[in-house]
């Protein structure tokens, strides 16, 4: 049992991201209102971003910006890689955040269109209204 606790304590960031992702996935699948599904989608994508950023962390390391002697023109002391955090996950997640915002924008525009046509955002009502129409 203590082994299990030690394992969780050493890797708690992964447990956090899985829990957050499952909350988002549940909201996307089970909720009735389209806006709540959108929020769930955002939580889902944010959990994956959290996972990636947590990959780049190193204990006792600072942000990936090289300051002081080494910076900009000066070639002072050698740069120790263990002092700086991993920049690559930050870069990848900049892209992923922008993509998730763009998807949220497009999905919201689609929700506005649905609301303009049907005056409701509840999925069961929409299904009922659609099945009343002539089947195409």
């Amino acid at each position: 049992m203590t082994e299990l606790f030690m394992l969780i304590a050493a890797k708690y960031n992964y447990c956090l991201y899985v829990i957050l992702m499952m909350i988002g996935l549940y909201a996307m699948i089970a909720k009735n209102n389209l806006m709540k599904k959108l929020v769930g989608m955002n939580i889902f994508q944010t959990a994956i971003i959290l996972f990636y950023v947590s990959i780049g962390f190193k204990h006792n390391a600072t942000i990936p910006i090289i300051m002081g002697d080494h910076g900009h023109g000066g070639h002072g002391a050698a740069i120790n890689a263990a002092d700086y955090m991993n920049p690559l996950p930050h870069v990848l997640m900049l892209t992923a955040i922008v993509v998730s915002v763009a998807t949220l924008g497009v999905a919201m525009a689609l929700c506005v269109k649905v609301y303009q046509r049907y005056q409701t955002l509840e999925e069961d009502e929409l299904r009922m209204r659609l099945s009343e129409k002539i089947k195409l």
């Binding site: 910006i65 090289i66 300051m67 080494h70 910076g71 900009h72 023109g73 740069i79 920049p87």
Partner: peptide, 14 residues
Amino acid sequence: IENAIRDTEVPNLV
């Protein structure tokens, strides 16, 4: 981390 300054002269690694 080690070569970005030498290659690109930019301190912000990201």
